[in-house]
Nucleic acid binder design. Structure first.
Length: 429
RNA sequence: GCGGUUGUGGCGAAGUGGUUAACGCACCGGAUUGUGGUUCCGGCAUACGUGGGUUCGAUCCCCAUCAACCGCCCCA
């Protein structure tokens, strides 16, 4: 097993040229979109004190119980690679007193790797990249709708069609407590018939029982109390207003009373965006989020409502693939030098420097390739122009510029090369 | 954490208990002088995931391990 360390750790991957261009494209789109919605970027550390996640995400969650990358540093501190973004953003919000800014709500977006110790499979990595937004400081249903609209736009802007927006309301504390008690009362008589997972879920988070796939067909499921019937007036009204905004914006959605999110901090609006695309695999959730009033206080900040969502860039790219969407990535090269002889090759080096300073993309051969092979390389690299330079040209102080698309070749004085190429590139496009 | 499938050169992919492990792609060179494609010819590569075991001998059989893929759980 020598050399095991020469493989990327399980659940991690290298993104290589050919793929990174797609990532860059998507990242730029998402940032651009965030700008339209007026969310500003925040960058927080990739690791935090372990306790932040224990308190923020919730001790009972799978994430905290079994998925965290936790380590002790040399100062004997327990630190954890962030498994999600919200806890860190809220911590930064409190620590930097962003609540004191005159611009409220505080609308932030982030972008970066997250870490969860899980068994890798399609759409699930141990290190994956999330893009997410958080709006802190407003309890206006309109901002829930804004966040939902932004989330959907992340996919629609890229041309995705097979999307399903699923929403639910988990209600406020009072509604949740009432519902929770109702659930326990409802399932308690059937406890022995439920799967072992559900038996423990019934204690910890009875809401999860509704989501169980094994017990899906149990008769008690049909008659189980719905959270929507336990929303108090305030919660109900809030949910109605969110839906009204969505209706007015023309955003399609379905309400699923069984939608339960995995993190403890959610209340009121909860949602997921799924992909309908064929062959997308078992994991269909592209992104998820919801409202988390109370989380800021839980993390020692002032009473501040909040809502946010996060999406996985890996899954976004999978969805694009599943729908056969090609991103408009220009992989061409402006110019490539084909030189003959040592003198010409040297001259090419300094000419390339000039071209690059003028903002032109240019490359040459460094493998000692034969002339013909240099042309092959230029073709392969999708060079728009090949600049031919040999002793003949050198002696005349010129260069031959060949436009690859048409095959036409023109002589250009060396001191005119930069401006010639600039004109060509402008005219050509 | 559990289950299934898989692991041969840069990629794809045959194959056998026993001399130099096919082939395709890619790459490099050539087909008379300095021009992209096709064709033809030639060349190339520390390849049987790793560690043990069975055997006179294993890439092929067994065990373990690692990894990948798929699924469960859960999520993004």
């Amino acid at each position: 097993m020598e050399g095991y360390y020469m493989k990327a750790p399980r659940g991690t991957q290298d993104l290589l040229p050919g793929t990174t261009e797609k990532w860059q494209y998507v990242e730029e789109k998402l940032v651009e979109l965030s700008r339209k919605y007026h969310y500003k970027e925040i960058r927080t550390p990739i690791f935090e004190h372990t306790e932040l996640f224990q308190r923020g995400v919730g001790d009972s969650t799978d994430i905290v119980q079994k998925e965290m990358y936790t380590f002790t540093d040399r100062g004997d501190r327990s630190l954890t690679l962030r498994p999600e973004g919200t806890a860190s953003v809220v911590r930064a919000f409190v620590q930097n007193k962003l609540f004191g800014s005159p611009n409220q709500p505080t609308k932030l977006f982030y972008f970066g790797p997250m870490f969860r110790y899980e068994r890798p499979q399609q759409g699930r990595m141990r290190q994956f990249v999330q893009f997410g937004v958080e709006a802190l400081g407003s309890a206006d249903p309109a901002i829930d709708a804004e966040v939902l609209a932004l989330a959907m736009s992340c996919y629609q802007e890229l041309g995705l069609k097979s999307l399903k927006l699923v929403i639910n309301s988990l209600g406020d504390m009072e509604s949740r407590t009432n519902h929770r008690n109702a659930l326990i009362n409802h399932f308690e008589p059937h406890k022995e018939e439920l799967c072992s997972d559900c038996q423990t879920r019934l204690q910890q988070n009875p809401l999860r029982v509704l989501d169980c796939k094994k017990d899906r067909n149990h008769p008690a499921m049909e008659t189980a109390p719905s959270i929507l019937d336990y929303l108090n007036d305030e919660s109900k009204q809030y949910f109605e207003q969110v839906k009204q905004h969505l209706d007015h914006m023309g955003i399609d959605y379905v309400v699923d009373a069984n939608l339960v999110r995995g993190l403890d901090y959610y209340n009121h609006t909860a949602f997921e965006i799924m992909s309908d695309a064929d062959g997308f695999g078992a994991i269909t959730t592209l992104s998820g989020g919801g409202r988390y009033n109370g989380l800021v206080e839980e993390l020692d900040g002032p009473e501040t409502p909040g809502i946010g969502f996060a999406l996985s860039v890996e899954r976004l790219l999978m969805a694009l693939e599943a729908e056969g969407i090609e991103l408009p990535i220009d992989d061409s090269l402006d110019c490539y030098f084909a030189s003959l002889g040592e003198r010409a090759s040297q001259e090419a080096v300094s000419l390339m420097f000039q071209l690059r300073q003028a903002g032109i993309q240019v490359d040459k051969d460094y493998q000692g390739k034969k002339f013909k092979a240099q042309f092959k390389a230029a073709d392969r690299l999708q060079a728009k122009y090949v600049i031919v330079l040999g002793d003949e040209e050198l002696d005349q102080g010129i260069v031959n510029v060949k436009k690859m698309e048409t095959g036409e070749q023109t002589e250009v004085a060396i001191d005119q090369l930069v401006s010639h190429i600039q004109n060509e590139l402008q005219g050509g496009n």
